[in-house]
Computed example of a mutant assay.
Amino acid sequence: MTGWVVLLVLVALAAAAGVVVVRRRRAERLAAADALRRVTAVAEEDVTRFGEELQELHVETLVTDLDAPMRQDYQRALDAYEAAKDLLRDVQQPADVKGVTRSLEDGRHAMACVLARQADEPLPQRLSPCFFNPAHGPSTTEVAWAPPGGIERDVPVCRADAERLAAGADPDTRMVRRDGAMVPWYDGGAAYRPYVSGYYGNAAAQGLFPAVFLGAVLAGPALGTAGHDLEGGGYDGSGFDGGGFDGGGFDGGF
């Protein structure tokens, strides 16, 4: 009789464990699907915005004589836009979004080159996109800035945001959805790391972008939390694993 009791208990425990596993896997699938929807929606918004800005640029080019370098930059911007649209259509998992935003970063630099040539200004360097919103295009300077409760650091910003900050105004920050609320992209959590990687990965690998902020997205906790620690991210207060990206590098692990 005791043997049957033990057997029944074991069967019950196995069934309970099976239910837990099924529920956990279902929760993981739902979380993965939600992350895919959120990061894809943000990338889609950026593609649409870039397309609208290219359309405005096209209208300007109708009344501007384009020399060969301007035409090349303009064509590069158009090609990047088409590539971003194609990659967006093919997104199957969050990691695929990285290619979309990488194409947008290239296209925005090309468009900035067209505008600089039109204004007879020096061509923009291939610097990090504006920290507050990558849709602002390449950064033009660095400013000292700190998130609420965080450490002040120099961040790359576009001209418009630099002027806003100098005037005491808030920067035009890219907002994303997290837990039902809109938050700055750097507080968006790990779901947005492919989106961030495409925009800032190359610049971070070259030391042109503060790795600590990307580490915050990688690890998940809100950047504005005072005294936060990036568990598992190796953040020691000076950078990401001593100031760089270790092991597989930014592209490999982000």
Score class of each variant (00 low, 15 high):
98 K>E: 15
49 R>T: 14
102 R>Y: 14
66 L>C: 06
70 M>P: 07
78 L>E: 08
73 D>T: 03
100 V>T: 04
84 A>L: 02
103 S>R: 07
59 V>H: 11
81 Y>D: 13
66 L>N: 02
49 R>E: 15
72 Q>C: 08
68 A>P: 01
107 G>E: 10
70 M>K: 08
87 L>Q: 13
67 D>V: 00
66 L>R: 04
97 V>Y: 01
76 R>Y: 02
100 V>H: 03
103 S>Q: 08
89 R>P: 03
53 E>R: 15
109 H>R: 04
109 H>W: 15
101 T>C: 02
59 V>D: 07
67 D>N: 09
88 L>Q: 02
101 T>D: 05
97 V>Q: 05
57 L>A: 05
79 D>V: 07
97 V>F: 04
77 A>C: 02
84 A>I: 05
105 E>M: 09
104 L>K: 04
103 S>C: 12
68 A>I: 09
90 D>Y: 10
49 R>L: 15
106 D>L: 14
98 K>G: 12
97 V>A: 06
49 R>I: 12
89 R>L: 14
66 L>S: 06
78 L>Y: 05
91 V>K: 04
88 L>N: 05
56 E>F: 11
74 Y>I: 02
98 K>N: 14
59 V>R: 12
88 L>C: 06
89 R>V: 11
54 L>R: 01
70 M>I: 10
70 M>T: 15
50 F>H: 00
77 A>R: 05
51 G>I: 04
56 E>Q: 14
75 Q>L: 03
66 L>Y: 05
82 E>M: 11
58 H>Q: 13
61 T>I: 05
53 E>W: 13
62 L>W: 02
52 E>W: 06
86 D>W: 09
68 A>W: 07
72 Q>E: 15
91 V>D: 04
78 L>G: 01
60 E>P: 01
88 L>M: 09
63 V>T: 10
67 D>H: 05
98 K>Y: 12
65 D>E: 12
73 D>H: 10
95 A>E: 10
63 V>D: 10
94 P>F: 06
93 Q>Y: 08
73 D>I: 08
62 L>D: 08
93 Q>L: 10
101 T>A: 03
109 H>A: 08
71 R>K: 00
55 Q>Y: 12
96 D>P: 08
84 A>P: 06
100 V>E: 04
49 R>P: 08
56 E>Y: 10
99 G>N: 05
64 T>R: 14
54 L>I: 00
92 Q>S: 13
74 Y>N: 01
82 E>F: 11
52 E>S: 15
85 K>L: 14
90 D>M: 12
80 A>P: 04
85 K>H: 09
87 L>M: 11
49 R>V: 15
72 Q>M: 11
109 H>P: 06
87 L>V: 10
99 G>C: 09
59 V>E: 07
59 V>A: 12
87 L>D: 11
77 A>T: 01
71 R>D: 10
105 E>C: 13
94 P>Y: 02
74 Y>T: 05
92 Q>V: 09
67 D>G: 00
89 R>D: 14
66 L>Q: 06
62 L>F: 02
81 Y>A: 13
64 T>V: 00
80 A>Y: 03
57 L>R: 03
76 R>H: 04
64 T>S: 02
69 P>Y: 01
78 L>K: 08
68 A>K: 08
51 G>T: 06
65 D>P: 06
65 D>A: 12
84 A>V: 04
71 R>L: 13
85 K>D: 09
107 G>V: 07
79 D>H: 02
